[in-house]
Design a protein around this nucleic acid. Sequence first.
DNA 1: GGCTTATATAAGCGCAAACGTATACCAGTG
DNA 2: CACTGGTATACGTTTGCGCTTATATAAGCC
Lengths: 98, 98
Amino acid sequence: MDVFEAAAEPNRRHLLGLLAERDRTAGELVDSLPTLTQPAVSRHLRVLREVGLVEVRPDGQRRIYALKPDGLQRIDDWITPYRRFWRDHLAAPRLETP
Amino acid sequence: MDVFEAAAEPNRRHLLGLLAERDRTAGELVDSLPTLTQPAVSRHLRVLREVGLVEVRPDGQRRIYALKPDGLQRIDDWITPYRRFWRDHLAAPRLETP
DNA sequence: GGCTTATATAAGCGCAAACGTATACCAGTG
DNA sequence: CACTGGTATACGTTTGCGCTTATATAAGCC
């Protein structure tokens, strides 16, 4: 699994959104997704860990998750050339438009 | 399938890359992925069409594919808030680093 | 009209993702 | 030490993606 697939999952994007606000314990993140069970969220966190999008530090018996900046930057690097593309085409979508 | 899942597939990102250079016929795109069969590429193009990342126009018996700017912009909109995040954290990764 | 070229769809298969239930692993607390 | 709370892993199941082979559709050409 790479960064793109990891970020493609809505629940994982939800987790990333929360971690962008501030660091959170695994428990808080579990509570933020009431439709999922604790193991399900734990596995999403593992995926985010493995692709380098988040990092964990232990705090007693809890685990505190934090966003890792460089992970998302890889997606941003990919998008960058396209950004130029739509900046050119957006104002004047088609030259041959009547 | 949404834009994120569509862009998560490496072969589809390859196709988007080619279409960012210039419009291409379906046949050119098929030839650009020698490890895949023609139907496989055709299905990838269908996915990209359905999520609004590309558009097609017929040219005789060929189909010419073109990149649609607004599709990728939706991913960019999602990334934007995170960009601020790593701009803040990248220069000084951790305050408590020894 | 018949034949070829270009592209899309259909059918079927294998595999990996995502989930829930059950369980293991620690760390704290009495 | 026994027990509880917080988190991760194991396991089995379902579901959907991506692939190939085979076929349909449609345009161009003789």
